[in-house]
Simulated scan of single mutants.
Amino acid sequence: MFKKLFFALTVLATSSSWTWAQQASSDYPTKPIRIVAPSAAGGGFDLVARVLGSKLSEQMGQQFVVENRSGGGTLAGTQVIAKAPADGYHLIVGGLSNMALNAGLYKNPGYEPLTDFIPLRIVVSHSYTLVGRKDLPFNNMKDMLTYAKVNPGKLNFGTSGPGTGQFILASLIKGMGNVDIQLVPYKGAQPVYMDLLGGRVDLFFDNTTTTRTYLESNQLKAFAVSSRQRAPDGPQIPTLMETGAMDLEMETWFGLFAPAKTPPAIVDKLRAEIDKAMQSADVRKKLQQGSGRIVQMNNAETEAMMKSEAAKWPRLLKNAGIAQE
């Protein structure tokens, strides 16, 4: 008798939970949704959070509130959402840094990108452009590497610190090119440009959009772009692979992610709303910022990309001699 009663209560509880989940999913959202940008205000994570958050608020009738959670590179904010309730009210902007690079940079990042998160949509990708002082005695990648080998320790790269695309690309060129180049850490990109223009630093790999101002004003010169294809607003700049100096490509991509156990109905609803938002010309323009590439992929393509990136970058970082912290 007790076994039958226990079984009946279990079935009732399971049925009630399922009914509640279905009801919650159909009513979603009924309160504001938090989007964590795992960085300080400004930059790619913040931009994606605010542009998508604004449009989704308009479409879904609830506020998408952006919360900047910096610290430990992108670790702090990402860890917060990995442990947050999987109810659709806690989202994070995921990108190359927190969803692929951190696994190769840290022994214990505190989360697993492929099992702790669901990629809702990847929406935009940006390349980096390698720029340098106008008076450097070389004008292409091959000559730069040759110069670095003949003059060990003489060239330096400005970087925005470990975990950033600027740092990773500079480290990869140093490791893959087998050259002795000094990496100089800065707190943000702006101080690097001040020292580039002042002749105190030689080279900098930065977001392609940001470099445009300095290239168009002829204050700096460009050596290569990190993407597989040339940037649409800088077609004269070769890709790293086109230079023949090294077989390397890197784009920093961004999208929205939810905790892994978020109900499927809510995941589907968010994906549909993001797809709708991305049809807006204004949203696309704001995300592109001149040189960005809008990304359009279905669920299977997105998951395949995530698996590929999560496997590729830790291996590349290890092969380049970048030690985990």
Rank of each mutant, 00 (worst) to 15 (best):
T146L: 10
P232L: 05
L183A: 07
A245F: 13
Q190N: 13
L215Y: 05
K154Q: 13
T146Y: 07
R212Y: 07
A170P: 08
T211C: 11
F204K: 01
A189I: 04
G163K: 05
L220M: 09
Y147G: 05
N218E: 15
I237Y: 08
A148M: 08
A170E: 01
G153E: 03
D233R: 09
I237C: 00
I173H: 05
T209G: 04
I181Y: 00
F205I: 01
T208P: 05
M241K: 14
A222F: 01
M194P: 03
Y214C: 04
Q229D: 12
P152K: 06
T210P: 00
Q236W: 09
T211H: 06
A170R: 02
N178E: 13
E242D: 06
Q236T: 04
A222Y: 01
T210C: 00
D206W: 01
S227L: 04
G163C: 09
L215A: 11
D180G: 06
L169G: 03
F205M: 03
T209S: 11
V192G: 02
P238E: 12
I173P: 00
N156I: 07
I181H: 04
Q182N: 08
F167Q: 11
M194Q: 13
G234Q: 15
N207G: 01
T239R: 08
Y186Q: 02
Y214A: 11
Y186F: 14
Q166P: 01
Q236K: 05
G198K: 13
S226W: 03
R230V: 15
L196K: 00
K187E: 14
Y147E: 06
F204G: 02
L240P: 01
Q236A: 12
I168C: 03
F167Y: 15
L197S: 01
L183G: 10
I237L: 08
G234A: 14
P235Q: 13
T164I: 04
Y186S: 01
K221T: 03
A245S: 13
A222P: 02
K187H: 10
T210I: 06
I173A: 04
D180N: 15
Q229A: 10
P238T: 06
K154H: 07
M176S: 15
L215Q: 06
T208Q: 09
G198E: 12
G153Y: 08
I168S: 08
K221M: 12
K187V: 12
